[in-house]
Design a protein around this nucleic acid. Structure first.
Lengths: 262, 262
DNA sequence: TTTTTATTGTGTCAAAATAGTACAATAATT
DNA sequence: AATTATTGTACTATTTTGACACAATAAAAA
C-alpha cells in the first residue's frame, strides 16, 4: 500500500468540491503541426488531458491555473474557459469499460483509501479551459501520477480516457470561431516569425489552404506587426523578413476585436 | 412551519448534485425592446433568473430544460450553454448581504429543514444557458416559489439576486459574438415579419443604428427569406412586404455559418 | 379629389475589400 | 553565369460596403 499517495488522495476528498473537475486543452504549434499537451498515466498506455479538482475556497479560474501548473509545470498561461461537460454518461463512456479502467488504475497505484475510491467513482461535471502556447517556451514536467507529459500531434492522438477526445474537439471548434474576431498567434508563435510561419499556423487551425499574397496583405494591414531583419535560412531562394508583434497595437486590436473572414 | 415546502427542499438535498446549479437567460423581443424572463420571489421585491439544481442522474442539458419548464412553464426551447460561473464570491456577492438575504427568504418561506439550510448556504457553481424566443408564443407561469414570472426590459432591470446581473451581461456578450456567424431571428421573430422588424431586432442586440437600405440588401442576400404578401398596417405610408424564413435554406446556412460584420 | 406624410423598394456611385495572377528581386546552388 | 525556389509587391477584375437619392405608395389631411 502506497502510504504517501493514499494520504494525498484523502486530502483531495477533504479539500475539494465533490463532483466538479477541470480539464485543460493546451495547444501548441511546432513543425507546422498543431499539438496538444497530454499526460500518460503511470504504467498505462492511456493518456488524458491535464485536469484536476477545485479547492473548496478557490475560484474555478484560479483552480484551472493551479491544476495546470501542478500537473505539467506550465505557469502564466492565458486560459480561456470554453465549455462545461455534464452529460450523465461522461464518467462511464463506453459502459463498464471506464469504471473498470479506473479501478485498475487505483489498484496499480495501490490506492485503497475507501472514501477516495467512493469519491472518484462518483459523477463529475468538468469545465474545460483552453490555451495556446509556444511549444519552445514550455518545459512540461509530468506530476507524480503520470509517466510522461508530452506534446502529441492533434491528427495522431493516442487513446484517451473518458470523453477527453470530445473535449478536445469542442475546444478546437471554439478556437476556430475565435479566429474570426481575435488575431491569435502572439501566444502560439515564437518571438520572431515569418509571414509563412503565421500562414501555416492559420492553415493548421482552419484546416484549409490560404492564398499567400492575399493572406500577407490582410495580416499586415492589421498593423500589429513590426518588421525586423531578414531570415537567412541557407535555402536557395529569397530570404523572408522576420516579424514580431507590436504588443501595444496587438492588445489594442484584441480589445476591440476584428471582423475577419477567410 | 410550511410542511409541503420543507418536504420539497428535503428532496432537493437528496436528489440533486450538491454545489451545482443552472441558470437560464431567456431573451425575447417585443415592442422593439429586448426583454428577459425573470422570477420574483414570493413576498419580496427581488428578482432572479429561472434556475435550479441538477438531478443526480440527469445530463446538465436535460436539467436546464427541466428547470426552465418547472419554473416558467416554457418548453421546447432551444437552450445554448454559454458559461460556467465559479468564482468563490458569487454566493456572497457584496459580502454579508447575500447570506443575510438568503436567511431572510428562508425564514419568510418558513423553511427550516436543517440539512437544506446547510445545503443551500454552501458554495454553488452555476452553468448558464441562454435562449431566444418569441414573446408572443410564450405563456410564462410562476412556480410555487415565485410571486411572478414576467418579461422585463433589459435596459430597466429590477434588483437581482447574487451575480445574476453579471450572468445576463455575459449571455449578451456571447449573443453578440454569435451574430457574426449565425443568422439569428428565427427564434426571436414571429412567423411573419418585415425587414424593419428584423432590423430593429439587430439594432437592439447590437445596441447601434444600422443603415436601412444596406441592411436589407445584406439580409436578403443571405437567401434565407421567402417574400410574402404586403403588410397593410393602416399607417400613412407605403406598406412593407412580409417575409418568413425559408427553413431549409436557413438551416443549411446555420450549419455552414456566415462571416457577417456590421 | 388633391395634397401631404412617412416609409418602402430599389438604384446609383464612390470607396474599400477581396481574389486571382503576374513578375521582378534575391539568397543560395549548380 | 545560369538555375532554383520563394519572397515582396504590383496590377486588375470583381465583389462588398457605406452613404445617399428618389420614385412608389398606403393612408391621412386638406
Amino acid at each position: 500500500m502506497n502510504q504517501e499517495l493514499n494520504e494525498h488522495v484523502a486530502q483531495l476528498v477533504n479539500d475539494c468540491l465533490p463532483g466538479n473537475s477541470i480539464d485543460c486543452v493546451i495547444l501548441g504549434y511546432e513543425n507546422q503541426q498543431l499539438k496538444i499537451l497530454l499526460l500518460q498515466w503511470k504504467n498505462k498506455d492511456v493518456w488524458s488531458l491535464p485536469g484536476g479538482f477545485i479547492l473548496k475556497d478557490e475560484d474555478i479560474d484560479q483552480a484551472a491555473h493551479r491544476i495546470l501548473e501542478e500537473r505539467t509545470g506550465l505557469k502564466s498561461i492565458f486560459l480561456n474557459q470554453f465549455y462545461t461537460f455534464g452529460s450523465r454518461e461522461r464518467s462511464q463512456m463506453n459502459g463498464v469499460i471506464q469504471a473498470k479502467r479506473t479501478q485498475e488504475m487505483l489498484r496499480e497505484l495501490e490506492i485503497d483509501n475507501p472514501s477516495f475510491v467512493h469519491w472518484i467513482q462518483g459523477r463529475f461535471i468538468t469545465t474545460g479551459y483552453f490555451a495556446l502556447t509556444d511549444i519552445r517556451k514550455t518545459h512540461p514536467q509530468p506530476d507524480f501520477l503520470s509517466e510522461k507529459c508530452e506534446w502529441k500531434a492533434l491528427d495522431d492522438l493516442p487513446e484517451l480516457i473518458l470523453d477527453h477526445g470530445q473535449i478536445i474537439e469542442k475546444a478546437l471548434e471554439h478556437l476556430r470561431i475565435q479566429l474570426n474576431y481575435l488575431p491569435i498567434g502572439l501566444s502560439l508563435l515564437p518571438e520572431k516569425f515569418t509571414m509563412q510561419d503565421i500562414q501555416k499556423l492559420y492553415e493548421a487551425l482552419l484546416q484549409k489552404k490560404l492564398e499567400r499574397s492575399n493572406f500577407q496583405r490582410k495580416m499586415l494591414s492589421l498593423g500589429i506587426f513590426i518588421r525586423l531583419e531578414k531570415q537567412l535560412t541557407g535555402a536557395a531562394n529569397k530570404a523572408p523578413y522576420l516579424y514580431c508583434f507590436d504588443k501595444v497595437k496587438y492588445n489594442k486590436l484584441v480589445s476591440k476585436g476584428i471582423g475577419f473572414s477567410y
